[in-house]
């Protein structure tokens, strides 16, 4: 068992790198896009709110598998022919963005309305109110569900192998496909995914402590 695990490790490195790159891209892009859209959903004019609400509801209502295949096979009809890697990252980003929108809405919604009004009363602009009044409080409530989503993104990145992108999961299957000895690979895969996600959880606890500290 141990010998089989040690044998497999070098073949998984490239796949592990892909998993990390995909996860990073998805998390960074979806946080940026979902964050902006989330603010649009809370403070935007009615048409923007409807658009974001529609996007979020539709995307969250579609299984991610369908989303991946739709983007890979559906968009070429509209003239956008993406490579498997880009298509997979785009699909995961769209899916994750919808979750981030809801995280942002929940976080901002939990801040009492009086905070915004108080900011207005002391003459802060909208951007200042957002940056100095709302964000510091909302971020504390945003972090726990968001980190939860990040670990989901790492695990969910295994779906890119459905488009033939060689990530960690696919690299494991390639070794199994050669050796016909599955169990050691699954044990190894579980350990690697756990190490990544446990690291993220630890990081999240650190961040939560950091942001729960109220500066005088």
């Amino acid at each position: 068992m141990l010998a089989a695990i040690l044998y497999a490790i070098p073949f998984l490195m490239q796949g592990l790198l892909t998993t990390i790159v995909v996860s990073l891209l998805v998390v960074v892009l979806s946080t940026a896009i979902g964050g902006l859209m989330g603010i649009g959903l809370v403070y935007g004019p009615a048409p923007v709110r409807w658009l974001v609400r529609g996007f979020s509801d539709i995307v969250r209502g579609i299984p991610i598998l369908v989303l991946i295949f739709f983007i890979y096979y559906g968009l070429p009809i509209a003239g956008l022919n993406l490579q498997p890697f880009s298509a997979a990252v785009l699909a995961l980003t769209v899916f994750k963005s919808a979750q981030v929108i809801e995280n942002v809405r929940g976080a901002i919604g939990s801040i009492p309305r009086g905070q915004m009004d108080a900011g207005k009363a002391v003459g802060l602009t909208f951007a200042q109110r957002l940056a100095y009044v709302i964000a510091p409080q909302a971020i504390r409530r945003f972090l726990p569900p968001w980190i939860n989503g990040v670990t989901d993104a790492v695990k969910g990145s295994a779906l890119v192998s459905l488009l033939g992108v060689t990530d960690l999961m696919h690299a494991m299957q390639q070794v199994i496909g050669r050796t016909y000895n599955a169990l050691p690979l699954y044990v190894l895969g579980a350990i690697i995914y756990f190490v990544i996600n446990y690291g993220l959880s630890a990081l999240s606890r650190m961040l939560e402590r950091r942001f729960s500290y109220i500066r005088e």
Binding site: F11, G164, H170, Q173, Q174, G177, R178, Y180
Partner: peptide, 12 residues
């Protein structure tokens, strides 16, 4: 093609 099924298509 695939890359996960010996002896059809696999990585050596």
């Amino acid at each position: 093609t695939g890359s996960t099924n010996a002896p059809w298509h696999f990585e050596n």
